[in-house]
Simulated assay, not measured.
Amino acid sequence: MHAFNLQPKKISLAERLADMAVDALIDEADLSPKPALVDRRGNGAHTDLHLGLMHASALSLWPAFKEMADAALGCGEIGLPLREALGRIGREGEAAMLATTNGVNTHRGAIWALGLLVAAAALEPESSVASAVTLRAARLALLNDRYAPQSLSHGAQVAQRYGVRGAREEAQLAFPAVTGLGLPQLKRSRAAGAGEQNARLDALLAIMTTLADTCVLYRAGEKGLQAMQSGAKAVLDAGGSASLGGRRQLHALDQQLIALNASPGGAADLLAACLFLDRIERGDGLFPGVC
């Protein structure tokens, strides 16, 4: 076939949603300077993570996200069959991730959050407002997967110990840290001319101001959580990451969290969810070229 006769391959809705989920994870990883998190500067508070590993992990999850979207399209409705299919696919995706990272947990929380959102978006692609997508995701999260492991994750154990919301409860409440804090701040900072990278940093910080991040609690206890929340608020109060004062506060927060070994991985997962929903809302290629 002559090269000029080649036509771009149409991609399915499930493939496009998987693309968008992986893009959100890579954009979150690349965003810099994030306090105590892996980014383009370095490893933050981590000794077992680096940017290349985060990229490889994100890419390894593409098949799982596609399969989750296909499962939603196949089921066509919210119910136990879809919930349990998502649980099975998520566990298989986690195994693929751990095989890629040699056992390092890079994106376990993101599989849960983005998996639900991918499925919710696939169920009603014409209803792409973030509040509608997260509500569908919440309805899925409220269903009990009979085949889920009975042992609690570190995050769930920490949530019980401190009496705070974990990743499961955040999803069951329709991701309030994302829809009530992250996305509004992202839009405000954009409107103020902060630039896309600074707007995304501000969205992360807005999530951090109130989130009971179980990753921080696990690594640094209540002292680390208080430092994260108050430090993030100080950045935004100083004018956000696009301002000189905000950058000074952000640098101080980064240093403080690293000293405490407190990495806000839960907030990072929710930022990825925020970026995914932002793409869905703006219609960045969800329908064009989809077969």
Rank of each mutant, 00 (worst) to 15 (best):
K9H: 11
V290N: 08
E169K: 15
D48E: 15
A227P: 14
C291I: 14
A58I: 00
D278A: 14
G115M: 14
Q150A: 14
I78M: 05
M1H: 14
L204N: 05
G195T: 11
L37M: 13
L257F: 07
H251I: 13
L53T: 02
G79Y: 06
M1P: 15
A18I: 04
V216S: 09
S127D: 13
L73N: 07
R168V: 10
L98Q: 09
Q255W: 04
F175L: 04
G180R: 14
G90F: 03
A113I: 00
G221T: 11
L61D: 01
L143Y: 08
D19C: 09
D145N: 11
A96P: 12
S12I: 13
E222R: 13
Q256M: 12
R188K: 13
G193E: 05
S60H: 00
V133C: 02
L217W: 03
A113S: 02
N102F: 02
H107W: 04
A174L: 03
H251R: 15
D202E: 14
T179D: 06
L186C: 06
R279F: 00
L205I: 06
E28T: 07
S153Y: 04
V118P: 02
I280R: 00
R139H: 10
Q249W: 02
F276S: 00
D145H: 11
Q197T: 13
Q226A: 15
R190I: 06
H107F: 04
G93N: 02
L73H: 10
